Amino acid sequence: MQTRELDMYDPLEDFEPRKITLEGTTKMVHVSGIGPAVIVIPEVPGISPHVARFARWVREAGFTVYMPSLYGRDGEPVDLEIGQAIFKRVCLSAEFRAFGAGGSAPVTKWLRALARLAHDECGGPGVGAIGMCFSGNFALSMMLEPSMLAPVLSQPALPLDDDAGLQISSNELKAVRERLDKEDLTVQAYRFEGDRFCKAERFTAYRDALGHRFVSHVLPDSAANPDVPEFFEKVVQTPHNVVTVHLIDEEGQPTRRARDEILEFFALRLQPHLPFC
Rank of each mutant, 00 (worst) to 15 (best):
R269P: 00
D74K: 15
F266S: 02
P146V: 05
W110S: 04
V218Y: 03
M142G: 08
D79C: 04
P220N: 08
I168R: 00
Y9D: 11
V44Q: 03
G46V: 01
E261D: 15
I39K: 12
K182F: 14
T21A: 12
F87R: 07
D74G: 13
H217F: 09
F192S: 07
C122H: 05
T108K: 03
L111P: 02
H246A: 10
E233P: 03
G136E: 03
L185C: 05
V44K: 03
A98G: 09
E5A: 14
N171H: 13
R177P: 08
H240Y: 06
L80G: 01
I41H: 02
H30D: 04
A164Y: 10
R179E: 06
E16H: 01
V44A: 11
V236H: 02
Y206E: 10
F203Y: 15
P159E: 04
F265A: 00
E201A: 13
R56Y: 01
S222P: 07
T26K: 04
G46R: 12
P125I: 06
P77L: 05
A105V: 07
Q188D: 10
D10N: 14
Y71K: 05
E264C: 03
S170I: 15
R97D: 15
L117P: 03
E193S: 10
E178D: 12
R4P: 10
I82H: 09
D208K: 14
S69K: 02
T238D: 07
H273F: 00
R59G: 08
F87H: 09
L160E: 10
G75M: 09
S169A: 14
E264Y: 05
A118P: 07
L160S: 11
Q237I: 13
R259K: 14
K174V: 13
Q84W: 07
F276Q: 06
A175I: 04
R207Q: 14
L92K: 13
K234P: 00
S135W: 03
T108S: 09
E13D: 15
A267F: 01
K88I: 10
H212V: 06
L247C: 11
D208V: 13
E145T: 03
K199P: 07
P156W: 05
C122G: 00
A85N: 07
F231M: 00
A139M: 05
Y71I: 09
D249C: 08
A164F: 12
G102F: 13
A85D: 06
E23G: 06
H217N: 12
R73N: 08
G83P: 04
H30T: 04
N241K: 12
G136T: 12
D163V: 15
F63T: 03
R56C: 04
A223M: 04
A258Y: 01
M28R: 02
D10I: 10
A85W: 05
C91Y: 02
G24S: 04
I20E: 13
F232E: 06
V90E: 13
A150F: 01
L263N: 02
R196W: 13
R53P: 04
Q253V: 11
N241D: 11
F63D: 02
V215G: 04
E261W: 08
D184W: 00
A118L: 08
D181H: 08
E261R: 11
R213N: 09
C198S: 12
M67L: 15
V90K: 10
P106G: 02
P229V: 06
P220C: 00
I20V: 13
